Amino acid sequence: MKSALILGGTQFVGKRLVQLLLNEGIEVTIATRGITADPFGDQVIRLKISREDAESLKQAFQDKSWDVVFDHTCYSSKEALGTFKALEGKIGKYVFTSSQAVYHFGTNHKEDNFNPLEYKPTLKGRREYSGYVGYQEAKRAAEAILFQHAQVPVVAVRFPIIIGKDDFTNRLKFHVDHVKCGKAIFIEHPDFRYSFIDSEEAASFLLMIANSDYQGVINPGSSEDISLRELVTLIEDQTETKAILQSEGDPSPYNLPGSWSIDTSRAKSLGYRFTSLNQLLDQLINFYHLE
């Protein structure tokens, strides 16, 4: 890979990925709405696009080509189709940031539990999807569009919950702050189980999978999962403070109507390794506790 287009690249995992690509000497182009600033100065080429306007994509990508595109900002079937058409003949590989949300709620989902080649997507814009169910449909539909129509290798990386010191959502930090400050938390289903991945390892995985011959769908992340009850216990142990769990508390941002975890054995079989979940959580809980 000598050149890469990143749709996004100004926040969280995308920003980490840009830096990794630059470290490798790869020519990087980032395509965004031009709203969020980035720290890369003249090291990157910038294009201004709107994912909701297919014509803006055609104009921005005209007379250009890249070895790989990393798509971080696709949230609808129309966006997937518009991007695919605008990049037709201009790229060698498509790496799509998908989600474990493509699966039904449950634990230890394997990649074969959702097949995008068998899914019939409805063309919709991002504003036509709402809530978790809408997010799930959008990611399923986007995968289906790409795998059913693309003429180049496609990889859909089905990330679990991404955490890290640079996590702007502050969802894990919410739990640490509430426990150490004695604020009540409402956890609706404390025994539902969840999978996680470190943000640094997520970016590294995207780079490695792009440089590999792999195509298809894949689940990366720590091999273990954890319940919110177990997560709170880890926080209690680190902060030496008893959590206050009650229905009148602030709702946990991890409150979901089902378990949400994946089987990462395929990635492991390909030689990829991720930090164990307990080690990862211990490090981050300690980081937030000491802030």
Rank of each mutant, 00 (worst) to 15 (best):
F159E: 01
I163F: 01
N170L: 12
V157H: 05
I162G: 06
A156I: 05
P153C: 08
T169E: 15
P153R: 09
A156N: 09
F159I: 13
G182Y: 11
I163E: 00
L172R: 03
C181M: 14
K183I: 05
A156V: 07
V154Q: 08
V176N: 05
C181H: 14
K165I: 12
I163N: 00
A156M: 10
V179R: 00
K165P: 01
C181A: 13
I163P: 04
G164W: 02
P153D: 06
V179L: 11
R158E: 07
H178P: 07
D167G: 10
V157Q: 00
I161Q: 11
V154E: 10
D167V: 12
I162A: 09
I163A: 01
P153Q: 04
I161V: 14
F159W: 13
V176A: 07
A156Q: 11
K173I: 01
I163H: 00
K183T: 10
I163S: 02
V154I: 09
H178C: 07
V154M: 07
R158Q: 09
K165M: 07
I161D: 02
N170W: 08
H178T: 04
V179N: 04
V176R: 11
L172N: 05
G182P: 12
V179S: 04
D167N: 12
V157F: 05
L172V: 09
F174T: 07
R171S: 04
V155P: 03
G182A: 09
P153A: 05
K183H: 12
D167H: 07
L172A: 10
V155Y: 00
N170Q: 15
P160C: 10
D177Q: 14
H178I: 02
V155C: 03
V154P: 09
K180F: 06
I163V: 15
K165G: 06
V157S: 06
T169G: 08
F174E: 13
D177T: 11
H178S: 10
V176C: 13
V154S: 03
V176P: 13
V155D: 03
V179T: 06
H175I: 15
I162K: 06
K173H: 10
H178R: 12
C181P: 00
I162R: 07
R171D: 02
D177L: 10
I162P: 08
V179W: 03
V154T: 06
L172D: 10
K180C: 09
L172H: 07
V176W: 03
V179Y: 04
I163Q: 02
G164Y: 01
I163L: 10
A156P: 14
G164S: 12
F174K: 07
G182K: 12
K173L: 11
H175F: 05
F168T: 14
H178M: 05
V176E: 03
L172P: 02
D177F: 00
C181D: 15
P160F: 11
P160Q: 06
D166N: 13
I162V: 15
